[in-house]
Simulated assay, not measured.
Amino acid sequence: MKVFLEAFLLQYLLTLYIAYRGGQALPARGAWRKMFYALMAAIFGLYVVGFAGNRVLPDALMSGIMSVTGFWFFMAIYVMFALVLVEIVRLIDRRWVHGYARLTQNGRARVRLILFFLIGSVSAGLMIKGMHIVRFPEVKHMTVQLDRPAIDGRQSMRVALLTDIHISETVTAPYIRYVVERTLAERPDVVLVGGDVIDYHGRYARRNGITEMMRRLQDETPMGAYYVLGNHEYRADEVEKREWFRSIGHLLIDEVATPGGVFYLVGRDDSTNVFRAPLHELMPQVDTTKASILLDHQPHVLDSVAMTGVDLALYGHTHNGQIWPFTLLTRLAFENPWGYQRKGHTQFFVSSGVGAAGPAIRVFTRSEIVILDIQFAKE
């Protein structure tokens, strides 16, 4: 609820300011300004309806509301960036250049109108491109050489890593079907799912056959599908979500498994749970002469993970910022916000995720299905 309230307040402030500045750019006479104000009011009205009725409105209606308001929410952020840039240019011009002041009244009106449509069209274009990025995730292939042998002595294994699907009003059944089919087309031996599978309400994972789609990852791979929780799994409907995970695969909460008898898989609870078991308490269940993989959600304290002797640690959570400029902020918040890293014996990989939180939009980041071709050491 806190997240929704913060988003509601930000949406209110952004929409109010953009309506004020946009109205200044449009002619006072005629219908353009009135139509623009009406559009802003309608979008914000939809946001109020969605905020107030998200638990009672039909799911199909909520999907439409969230698609429209989410598109505008991210678009408004970029419009705001553009307005700040325009304001900086205007101050520089007023202080040193005086070009705008020399224009006629009609010339100034023309400049404002051009900026209005330029900012609006570029921002909307970024959103449309961002929707396409999420809708068609890339398949990223990596080869990882482990320093320890497999439990059963095999030489190789293919792992599909999926994180941050965020099933929701905007990440729906057609998208889940596409992701599942793209993943299975890579013929993985095992599927590892690194948390934040459900964005908020658990009911969206049970609609339109999504459960059956996700169960295919378990049923159509030799070693099955293994899941850990993310921070979004703790935001609502915790019990319902855990039951759902267990209906589609293996849920690991501070547990160690041996998928197919091939390697040790350490599945941690999300760090949202401050009482989760320390990693050093789980590692005694692992034969450290054999290959081991850690599956966790948030890539924190990597140094302490490296000290445990895990061969490979897999994470998600960051989305690599999802939209610029939050990509820059994730670099400040996380030692490794995205990609491969090695610390001593332990190799790390942080996925940018396959879905998206909130609006199904990414800007200057990518959605990815990660395929890891694991090479084991020889006995």
Rank of each mutant, 00 (worst) to 15 (best):
K2E: 09
V3Y: 08
F4P: 00
F8W: 11
L14Q: 10
Y20H: 13
G22W: 01
Q24V: 12
A25N: 13
A25C: 13
P27N: 11
A28S: 06
A28H: 09
R29C: 08
R33F: 05
Y37C: 03
L39I: 10
M40F: 11
I43R: 01
G45W: 10
Y47A: 03
P58C: 07
G64W: 06
S67Q: 09
T69S: 06
M75E: 13
V79S: 04
V79T: 11
M80V: 13
V86C: 15
V86W: 04
E87G: 15
L91E: 14
G99Q: 04
A101H: 14
A101N: 08
T104W: 05
N106C: 04
N106R: 11
G107K: 02
G107E: 14
V111F: 07
I114W: 13
S123Y: 13
M127V: 12
I128T: 11
G130F: 00
M131I: 07
M131L: 04
F136N: 11
P137C: 08
E138T: 07
V139E: 03
T143E: 11
L146V: 09
D147M: 06
R148K: 14
R154E: 03
V159Q: 02
I165N: 00
I167Q: 00
T170Q: 05
T172D: 02
Y175T: 00
Y175K: 03
I176E: 00
V180N: 00
E181M: 08
E181F: 06
V190Y: 02
L192R: 02
V193I: 15
V193H: 01
G194N: 03
V197C: 01
Y200W: 11
H201A: 04
G202E: 05
G202L: 01
A205N: 05
T211W: 00
E212S: 10
M213P: 01
T221R: 02
M223F: 10
Y226M: 08
L229T: 12
R235Y: 15
R235F: 15
V239Y: 10
K241F: 07
F245S: 00
L251W: 07
I253W: 10
D254I: 09
D254V: 13
E255D: 15
A257M: 11
A257V: 05
P259R: 12
G260F: 03
G261F: 07
Y264H: 13
R268S: 09
S271N: 14
N273F: 09
E281T: 10
M283D: 06
M283I: 14
P284Q: 12
V286N: 01
I293H: 02
P299G: 07
V301K: 10
A306K: 05
A306T: 12
M307C: 02
G309N: 07
V310A: 06
L314M: 12
T318C: 08
H319G: 02
N320V: 04
N320Y: 13
G321I: 06
I323L: 12
W324E: 03
T327K: 07
T327L: 09
L329F: 15
T330M: 12
R331D: 06
A333G: 07
A333V: 11
A333N: 09
Q341C: 00
T346N: 04
Q347M: 08
F348H: 09
S352P: 07
S352E: 05
G353L: 06
V354N: 03
G358L: 05
P359C: 05
R366K: 14
S367H: 02
I369D: 01
I371Y: 06
I371R: 04
I374L: 12
A377C: 06
K378R: 14
